[in-house]
Design a protein around this nucleic acid. Structure first.
Lengths: 342, 342
DNA sequence: TTGAAAGCGCTAACAG
DNA sequence: CTGTTAGCGCTTTCAA
């Protein structure tokens, strides 16, 4: 197969010049005359030349590739994030090597090793919910491969992060709810081993406290970020006959799980119980009822992460660590807009 | 940065053996004694050796990378497809290089060139809706880089394809609807420049014909695959006071656009007008009303495509072209289950 | 069982 | 402006 691949030498010998000349011409190096450059480019096109990135990267010691590690792909938050990272990378002439950890720490580690082996110029990562061992991140940082943590970050000093103001977002939505009249509020929370889990719980509690409301410990239920958590936790409270007036779901899928469970047992949203969640998605306005949420600026998350990473790739000498925190905003739709009970 | 990277030579000199020995040992080559192998692996681990894939690929002329080109990523159909391709690739020790064409033929072409430059071992592609020039695909096939077309395929002889039975799926759902009593049925169709557009239209027409129903030309509206098409087309018919009893949407996003428009003008689904679409998504059951659809087996699409591609990578001599067509199934939820009008 | 030599395709540094 | 030399880190003969 590779026998058919055209190389610099093929072009060079056809034109009776050296391969170096061809190499330079193809890259538009000012060394080479307009004439030659034009001629070279022309024959390259004719021959269907396709530069071998492997070889190029090997000798130039730059790959123009950025590794991206995410926990999931088939969720709106991440697919939107990914799409934006790709867009920004493309604008800046980088290739993205995307890997998916499936929320599994082991897999994540393997992927990182692969990326390192591919000699990516830098890495952007949203860590999995099960990642507890941060040794590998330390190693990467020691190796001086720039890395930026995006949204899901480890509790590790000295690393560059781009996150959303999870605490503030949670605070705002709960504050809004309380002002509406809600008092019995539950939080189907993320694991407190994750930053987003902790921060959202913190914002929730703080809002409750600021209003002098008691936090029922049974109403903070930690779990994973998927539908299952929402479904199971709702069912648990339902069976205990211990449903609150409002549930604040840590993610959109968790809210979906709540919708599912509520429908199953005939509990009406928002008449009997109300729901709001962290994380937006296009289809939320089509749910019944349309789901209100705390909106995360996924485009900003992606672009700022890329910019920060590129900054570090371009200048390895910078030692300060940056923590970019982005604002959220509340999107009110059919839930969490009116208190329905006496 | 690269100065810190450990190479085969570093390990070799530390152990007073040649780099060849190390190379072989690391790959578990039977040439090398158990002892040496063990020793080598151990020191490699100690030193934090990370093999340089660029170099490896360059000299072995195999990249173990597969290029994947899709039109979109933030849509359930594609993200699910991608996730499954990744899973299958991982099981088979391949890396996926994912690129997103954004439904743009030019971008798609660039991405393909990049993949070729990366010397991927093969390519899986779902072509964009605007791809009209198939020259590049011919070139790839001439170059003997295996390529498999998945779901969105070009009208090009001699290429390997894995698709869903679009025609049959469309036929079945319309047949079901007609049996229910629907007669005035519209199809918000895909562009007839795409295979899935054509096939779904064909299945639609055939079902109508088989039941002796007339196809109103104004009720087949071609367009793109996004929300916009659904919204605009609905509004068009609404303003013309020419709404049918049932709309068959070519994709799930198109159906979503219909929901949006219908709500805006106060047309009730399914009481006033009913909707059904091609393509499933987890959230459809949470829509109001839950949306019925023709389900595509994304896992099968992905796995069969990967298998076919790997087959061609492993044996370049095979000349026959394969066309794998997968069955769909109807998922009935809150729409298209009962005819509501006299 | 090990290693020396050659080369994958390209680029960087330097000479001409 | 163009070319020579050297080498990126690895694997593949082939000889020892």
């Amino acid at each position: 197969m590779r026998s058919k691949q055209i190389t610099l030498n093929d072009i060079a010998s056809k034109l009776n010049v050296s391969s170096v000349t061809v190499s330079k011409a193809l890259r538009g190096h000012p060394d080479i005359s307009k004439e030659t450059t034009k001629l070279v480019k022309q024959t390259a096109a004719e021959l269907g030349y396709s530069p071998n990135f492997m070889a190029r990267n090997l000798s130039s010691r730059k790959s123009n590739m950025i590794g991206l590690v995410v926990p999931k792909i088939a969720h709106h938050f991440f697919s939107s994030l990914i799409e934006n990272v790709y867009a920004c990378a493309f604008e800046n002439n980088y290739e993205i090597i995307l890997t998916v950890s499936q929320e599994d720490a082991e897999l994540e580690k393997k992927h990182i090793q692969t990326l390192l082996s591919m000699r990516v110029d830098g890495i952007i990562i949203s860590i999995s919910q099960s990642t507890k061992d941060f040794e590998i991140f330390k190693k990467i940082m020691e190796r001086e491969v720039p890395i930026v943590f995006m949204d899901r970050i480890p509790n590790l000093p000295g690393c560059n992060t781009v996150t959303v103001d999870d605490r503030g977002g949670a605070y705002n939505v709960i504050n809004h709810a309380i002002n509406l009249g809600y008092k019995k509020i539950a939080h189907f929370a993320g694991k407190s081993s994750t930053n987003i889990g902790i921060e959202r719980i913190f914002g929730f509690k703080q809002a409750m406290n600021d209003h002098g409301l008691e936090v029922n410990p049974g109403w903070i239920i930690e779990g994973e970020f998927g539908e299952r958590h929402g479904y199971d936790s709702f069912m648990k409270l339902y069976k205990e006959k211990n449903l609150p007036d409002l549930i604040f779901a840590v993610t959109y899928p968790v809210a979906l799980g709540i919708y599912m469970a509520a429908r199953e047992v005939g509990v009406k949203i928002p008449a009997d119980i109300d729901v709001v969640c962290f994380g937006n998605s296009q289809v939320q306005s089509f749910l019944s009822p349309p789901l209100s949420c705390v909106n995360q600026p996924t485009d900003q998350l992606a672009y700022r992460s890329m910019e920060l990473l590129m900054e570090r790739i371009d200048d390895k000498e910078i030692n300060e660590t940056k923590h970019i925190v982005l604002d959220t905003n509340l999107i009110l739709r059919g839930t969490c807009v009116k208190f329905n009970k006496g």
